[in-house]
Design a protein around this nucleic acid. Sequence first.
DNA 1: TATATTACTGACTGGTCGGTCATTTATGAA
DNA 2: TTCATAAATGACCGACCAGTCAGTAATATA
Lengths: 232, 232
Amino acid sequence: MPVQHPRPRQNKRRPRGPRWRRLPEERPRQILDAAFDAFREKGLAHARLDDIARRAGVSKGTIYLYFPNKEELFGAVIRHLVAENIDAERESHAGPASAELRAYAGRIWAFLRSPNFEAVYRLTIAELHTLPALSRFFAQEIALRSMRGIARIVQRGISEGEFGAADPDDAARMLYALLVKHGVWCNQEVRNLLLPGLDDDTVFDHVMTFCLDALRPAAASTPLARHRSARR
Amino acid sequence: MPVQHPRPRQNKRRPRGPRWRRLPEERPRQILDAAFDAFREKGLAHARLDDIARRAGVSKGTIYLYFPNKEELFGAVIRHLVAENIDAERESHAGPASAELRAYAGRIWAFLRSPNFEAVYRLTIAELHTLPALSRFFAQEIALRSMRGIARIVQRGISEGEFGAADPDDAARMLYALLVKHGVWCNQEVRNLLLPGLDDDTVFDHVMTFCLDALRPAAASTPLARHRSARR
DNA sequence: TATATTACTGACTGGTCGGTCATTTATGAA
DNA sequence: TTCATAAATGACCGACCAGTCAGTAATATA
């Protein structure tokens, strides 16, 4: 909880405690949180450092004790948010690959639909040109990581005959692309134009159904085919 | 070709012709082109009107004769670019639906891969928050238009039995999502990370194959079984 | 040619805001 | 209690730049 500056008081007495506290351990976090709020609302260019300082309950100078400049602060905000959203890879080999795939994709979907993702995505895209390092970080830590996870499951499905022949990396890219794009659409103001009357779960369901249809084994060659899971 | 301002000359003689021409018909176009270049390179916030004026071969004041302010100029740039890329809907009902679908998607792909699209997309996303009207325009004129075209073809494929039962609007969304996301990836600096060693045509081919696989009719054993769709 | 009209110019202004730093305050150790 | 030092403040600076407008140049018209 940031220390509030005392408001100018009617009577002249100073308020009880100190005017501010030394909290070197907590400042970075406070500033990052405040900065994210400001960037989310205004974007990098229009967010004001004075505003960020006010939201964080510190003075502008304090920001510069912890971050060298606005751009670095922005980068730190993004990295911080991404890092805290990367959860450990949970493995769960049991059951049909389609079920594992659905569960895995579901976790990606939850991430894509989490409140912060929309802003992180928008802010990052907007600054890709200015901050190429961020782009690389994003691609590595989010996209590639997710796609590798998907590909592993698809690979299992193929070798166990549940899925038809396909390139697992291709398939992973497809599923991931569908998830991200639909996630973004869900967040847009024009959502109702693009996804009329569909709620999050339904959208996810459609994506999964489409992908599992694409991964179905070819009809003739595999008689015990179409193992496709029951949909929840 | 914009009229160049005469450089300061060593000898005092005035250059031959007039210092500038009145070209009220051509100014808007010149300014839009110059502005797009500037915005593409620097983004809305960092592009300088003095720079745009210089590139257009006019003075800053002239810009304000044709556009009320920077933001409106930005909007006009985007609308101008989108408008000139919307080509007339060409119909071509001949042949199998899969071929027509491939051709139609190919035109969308060509648009997505055209040199200007990357910049338009990035700039628009970045300003969605600030300029919601632009977002709506974009969704209507690009996304929805394309999806309707796809859905029409998918519908034909379904009724002719070439595709299995599916919701044409869903399928259109899927194909369109895959095209856009892959188009964006192709444009990114990290392309080689995400699409290692794949050229544009190959990427397109993978997308089409995946979608056509998903649209395959169900195996003969269960003729009408898979009739999901019709949710809403 | 003279005059009116329109297109255009570019120096200027006023407000904005990232970044600085001399000063003040908190805090822990002596 | 005193002192040393780290932490924090906030007034200030100056670069920046969108937008203005008085003036000038080109062209149309008489």
